[in-house]
Design a protein around this nucleic acid. Structure first.
Lengths: 360, 360
DNA sequence: GTCTAGGATTGGAACGATCAAGAGCCCTGG
DNA sequence: CCAGGGCTCTTGATCGTTCCAATCCTAGAC
């Protein structure tokens, strides 16, 4: 077996001797090295460059690692390699009422995807007035390797700031307002989603399909709207007077739907959110119209509300799991300073069909 | 001003000279020390024990820190002090359809509360089959200072495991099945919430109020149910035949509600979740009963669904923000090895009243 | 003028890992 | 016989911070 060659007494002997109430000092590289009768560096190599070791040595070291339950101290590793294996994500105070369960799905997928490459997600918050608050501290203290930025719409300054600081990051969301942006991003093709909804309603026999969307200032809202418009035009349908812009609010949608439904030829509604779609369902109920049979309604985001609402709301579902996986993939490339084929990648949402849009 | 006494050339001069494409090396303690004409230790004290410095020195050092934009390197500090200022939270793959927007609210509050004491939240995931997966790695690599455990019901082994390992943690959720548990926890008094709902319905003139809850195996479900039962008994109402246990599913609730509504004396429904409550609303719609006027319905969790559903679903709202603040508070005590007054603290939910339970 | 107390500041060591060389060994080829 | 080169493993230095103990300095007491 291993004959522990007598070497200068290791400092790890002291901690192992005592029995205090405090948790025992976890084993270090030196502990493992002593136990296996090799040097620290060899243990390090066993973990990071196993191919450098002779197979027998590798096995021996590994078994000691296993036996002692050793894991490298992250702080020490981080100090030396200058990489923390942490990904920072500023967690915004998503306003109540919005379908922010999206964030939940996304965050979970991101956590999982990151863990597959040995990374973890670090959440931080910041002053809601200053979209850059929090980033700087983490950068200067070299606490994270990179950031995932989630709101790149409406001229948010994060991307520019991080590029200027030379901080690695990827974005969930295309760089709407930045012509010179050259960072990696992934986004969901909202226009495609709205078009799917529109085409589905057309297939169900609806012709005059209205759009309920957000204010013109919302880039995402306008993007989705363009999908509806495109779908309608491709089918030779006139969209004049059918596109409505309101705030994301059930009651606003209900009122808008009532107005549109004054015209009996309007039988379909594609909406920028589930909240708006539910407003349409309310209007239908008040008019004695049956969703599905009489009026086709499709929402966006496939929130819990869409799933539980009567009679089941069709909705466009974002592939958040894939977004997370893709973000982690390109983040990996960015961190390795490897070239990325496409700076940006657009993923397509899918349509979840429920009774609210089915004639039968 | 400061006369930079000539001292052995500091190693920090090299990095400051070059101009590569790589991001510039951030300033270190030594940089600041040189610049301010003091030793490293003095700069360190300026940050950690300002009262040790002479006021003038303090000001001088602080101004240099400010000017250079210095933040201590977290890895180095963590290595030396053995504390990462990170709080680990295992982010479970909350099943779709459940009102997991809860988690979103909680997580955000936790992030904010933690940041107020200079901590960050580290998310990790683990094999869904092994509830302990992930904890061990983070512990052994000393990556986090403590954990927040969120699911202590149904005999989950996390608490026991962490206590055994001597790892600091606090729990969101009381230790249901552990008589010997001595860890700190915070929970929401579900029974109180259900009682609030029941009393509210009684006030609205309902007498025969049914309970729609989860399977008997759910400790949380049984806890909430006991609140309904207590409220009914206090009002001298018989609960026989009114308490139903089903799975958390709209359709199951709809069917159960239909059955209960066969008895016309049943006019109120307190539910263990919004999903179940919405099932009741569906049944009402199918029977031509008007929620609020004819039937009083109250859900639980105040999810998005409760807010947007017609006609607005009353619901019990958990004080997740307060839970997070409280958890961080006691975590602070635990980390400082200070005694905690109460091991556990129960917070009270509130009732959000909407038309589904209002007669007028 | 010396001694002492104590506040302010300093230099060296340590935390636990990786990097960069170097050293020992065995084999091959001139 | 020895130089040269893999292969395997070891040694010392280093990352940036804080801990520890020592040193400097000033003021007060005798």
């Amino acid at each position: 077996m291993t004959q522990p060659t007598s070497r200068p007494e290791s400092r790890t002997e002291a901690p192992r001797g005592r029995h205090l109430s405090a948790p025992p000092t976890p084993p270090t590289l030196a502990t493992v090295a002593d136990e296996a009768g090799v040097s620290r560096q060899t243990v390090s190599n066993a973990l990071n460059n196993p191919e450098l070791l002779r197979p027998e040595t590798l096995v021996r070291v590994q078994s000691v690692i296993e036996r002692l339950g050793y894991s490298p101290n992250r702080a020490a590793r981080q100090l030396r390699t200058r990489s923390s294996h942490l990904i920072g994500l500023r967690f915004e105070p998503a306003q109540e009422g919005t379908s922010n369960a999206l964030m939940d799905r996304f965050l979970h997928s991101l956590t999982e995807a990151a863990s597959r490459t040995g990374h973890h997600v670090l959440l931080f918050s910041g002053d809601s007035k200053d979209p850059l608050d929090g980033y700087d501290d983490l950068l200067r203290s070299t606490a994270v390797d990179a950031f995932v930025v989630t709101d790149t719409y409406a001229g948010t300054p994060q991307a520019g700031f991080l590029r200027e600081r030379g901080a690695p990051f990827v974005a969930f969301g295309r760089p709407w307002d930045e012509p010179g942006a050259d960072h990696a991003w992934t986004d969901v093709d909202g226009a495609h989603g709205a078009r799917l909804a529109t085409e589905h309603l057309l297939e169900q026999g609806h012709r005059r399909i209205a759009w309920l969307g957000w204010e013109k200032t919302s880039r995402i809202g306008e993007d989705r709207r363009s999908g509806w418009q495109g779908g309608m035009q491709a089918a030779g349908q006139d969209t004049r007077g059918l596109g409505v812009r309101i705030t994301d609010n059930v009651d606003a949608a209900r009122l808008a739907a009532h107005e549109l439904l004054e015209d009996p030829s309007v039988t379909g509604f594609a909406c920028a959110s589930d909240t708006l779609a539910i407003g349409v369902l309310h209007a239908c109920a008040e008019r004695g119209l049956r969703p599905g049979r009489d009026i086709g309604v499709v929402g966006f985001d496939d929130s819990l509300a869409a799933q539980v609402t009567w009679p089941g709301l069709s909705s466009v579902r974002q592939p958040l799991e894939e977004v997370a996986v893709e973000l982690v993939r390109i983040l990996h490339l960015v961190l390795a300073h490897k070239p990325i084929g496409d700076k940006g990648r657009m993923l397509r949402p899918s349509l979840v069909v429920r009774p609210s849009s089915l004639r039968s």
